[in-house]
Write a protein that binds this DNA or RNA. Structure first.
Lengths: 187, 187
DNA sequence: TGCCAAAAACTAATAACATTAGTTATAATA
DNA sequence: TATTATAACTAATGTTATTAGTTTTTGGCA
């Protein structure tokens, strides 16, 4: 046997390249160059470019999920969503390439990817539960929140906002509007 | 001179391929094949693959803008946003490749692309004005709405929702929550 | 009607990339 | 130390984008 390159080394290299040069620069040639080996040698670690990109997407969504759960600790209600939303946007700022990897993952998605995605969704559900929403409206309420947070992050990552300075304030206000609207409708 | 292929024919072919096979299948080879010519002949109509994809993005966002403006006619307040949001999601369902082209446009973005994007943003501003929001909160309010609508469309186009049946209901409720929250905060 | 100049097609050639096949070097272990 | 699996390598092929240079077509004009 031989030590050499561990599986996570390849993913780490891909993540570095993605965040620095963009997701479309995650090629076998670039990753091999980064690791100091020839392109075909990568086939000892991944099954090809699509496989590498899927593994990168799994790594990315798992890391996002972990950070979101961490961000929610110690908060509840409206403030919890503001903290999670802020963390979400910060993650995308810090790791634009990883976020691209999540959004461009090819179907069918790996099982591990689905699991991490579901975990993020589950976090939203748990944070929303204490707000006392009609059972049949919970799915709708979660979808709106999730869409809003994803929308903010996505639009910023593609340069959709003019001034990034007060984007966090926009997000906090938007979440406030939304949660207030849910509460006022509940009556 | 020679008639042959008009510039919009190339874009139309690219749009067909994008919506049918996905944005990443918009290659010079595929477009040329679709048009029945050899790949290098395309350079008489576009300046290369990046140029073709930018032109496709401009076409896509202009078409989206037109449809959104049309959808808003005859409505105001909350209902106007629901109609625009519905139109947005329907557009993405009908033209997933065009929507991808919008979201994956490379920077620096063409001037025409920025103009059409601004026009969409302007529509949101105009629909929001009659609701009587504090002047300094208008930017935040628009950002939230836009993020939410884009988030819904984006998440659906990447298969982020389980049951697509009642997605329109989710969107309508989310917009309702949001606008209600704005109004209740206004007091 | 027949020329002609420009537009738009073509072929040929090159470079980058992914991928496969087959070969060699290396390191853990028996 | 010898063996063997692992992981590197070279060589070769196919696809795509791109450039250069050539030929064909055709609308408009003499």
């Amino acid at each position: 046997m031989r030590a050499g390159i561990k599986p996570e080394t390849v993913i780490a290299a891909s993540a570095d390249i993605a965040d620095r040069d963009g997701w479309d620069q995650v090629t076998l040639a670039n990753v091999a160059g980064y690791l100091g080996i020839r392109t075909p040698s990568l086939y000892n670690h991944v099954e090809g470019l699509p496989d590498l990109r899927q593994k990168l997407a799994v790594h990315a969504v798992a890391q996002l999920n972990e950070r979101l759960h961490d961000a929610a600790i110690g908060y509840s209600g409206k403030q919890a969503f503001i903290e999670v939303g802020r963390c979400y946007v910060l993650f995308v700022r810090e790791h634009p390439g990883l976020y691209e990897a999540i959004n461009r993952v090819a179907s069918p998605k790996p099982e591990a990817f689905e699991q991490a995605s579901d975990a993020v969704l589950h976090l939203f559900f748990r944070l929303l539960r204490p707000l006392g929403i009609h059972e049949e409206d919970t799915v709708h309420a979660v979808r709106g929140l999730r869409s809003m947070v994803h929308g903010f992050a996505s639009l910023e990552s593609m340069g959709g906002f003019q001034m990034k300075e007060d984007l966090m304030e926009s997000l906090a206000k938007a979440i406030t509007y939304y949660i207030d609207g849910i509460s006022s409708g509940r009556k």
